[in-house]
Computed example of a mutant assay.
Amino acid sequence: MPTLRDIMTPGLVTVDPQATLKEVATLMLEQDIGAVLVMDGEHPSGIITDRDIVVRAVAYGHDYGTAVTDYTTGSVFTMEADTDVQQAAREMADRQLRRLPVTEGGRVVGMVSLGDLAVRTGGSADETALQGVSQPSADPQ
């Protein structure tokens, strides 16, 4: 059975909490990614997605020089690299996560997305996660 280590994208793009919305958006453009992990030292303090930037900042006309922490989703849920892919898919579904930071010994080493589940597992795990993520949230943002 594959583990998160087998399907994760290694080499995360991260920023510190003082990064601005413009800096993060530029990183997303340059790296062709949709999410950036905000790190407080070695620990993730938040995650920000391209959707967060649009819905939480641009839509309200906020200044692009604002610190990214004003728009991140805090309490980042992570799973260890040796976690079974099916278990991770269930957690992603239950928590309605589209992206899951992967850790090894408590240190962030990669990211798994719904796309990774679909492409790298032959579709076996993505159906579980997609069904959960697609459900309306009890607490919409």
Results as ranks from 00 to 15, higher is better:
Met1Gln: 10
Pro2Leu: 11
Arg5Lys: 14
Arg5His: 15
Asp6Phe: 01
Met8Lys: 03
Thr9Gln: 05
Thr9Asp: 01
Pro10Asn: 02
Leu12Gln: 03
Val15Phe: 04
Ala19Gln: 14
Leu21Met: 03
Glu23Leu: 03
Glu23Arg: 02
Glu23Thr: 05
Met28Gly: 13
Met28Val: 09
Leu29Gln: 11
Leu29Val: 10
Glu30Pro: 02
Glu30Thr: 04
Glu30Asp: 10
Asp32Lys: 14
Asp32Asn: 14
Asp32Cys: 13
Ile33Val: 15
Ile33Gln: 11
Gly34Thr: 03
Gly34Asn: 02
Ala35Ile: 03
Leu37Tyr: 09
Met39Asn: 10
Asp40His: 10
Asp40Ala: 13
Gly41Leu: 07
Gly41Thr: 12
Glu42Tyr: 07
Glu42Thr: 14
Pro44Gln: 11
Ser45Arg: 13
Gly46Met: 05
Ile47Met: 08
Thr49Phe: 07
Ile53Ser: 03
Val55Arg: 05
Ala57Gly: 11
Val58Gly: 00
Val58Glu: 02
Val58Met: 09
Ala59Leu: 13
Tyr60Arg: 01
His62Phe: 07
Tyr64Leu: 14
Gly65Trp: 00
Thr66Val: 14
Ala67Leu: 12
Asp70Ile: 01
Asp70Glu: 12
Thr72Ile: 15
Thr73Lys: 00
Ser75Phe: 01
Ser75Asn: 11
Ser75Cys: 03
Phe77Gln: 05
Met79Gln: 15
Ala81Glu: 10
Ala81Thr: 07
Thr83Phe: 04
Asp84Phe: 02
Asp84Pro: 09
Asp84Leu: 10
Gln86Ala: 15
Gln87Cys: 06
Ala88Leu: 12
Ala89Gln: 04
Met92Gln: 09
Ala93Leu: 04
Leu97Ile: 01
Leu100Phe: 00
Pro101Lys: 06
Pro101Thr: 08
Val102Asp: 08
Val102Asn: 00
Thr103Pro: 00
Gly105Gln: 11
Gly105Arg: 09
Gly106Leu: 09
Val108Lys: 00
Val109Trp: 01
Asp116Ser: 10
Leu117Glu: 05
Ala118Met: 13
Ala118Pro: 15
Val119Lys: 08
Gly123Ile: 11
Gly123Leu: 04
Gly123Glu: 06
Asp126Gly: 08
Leu130Asn: 14
Leu130Gln: 15
Gln135Asn: 11
Ala138Phe: 04
Ala138His: 01
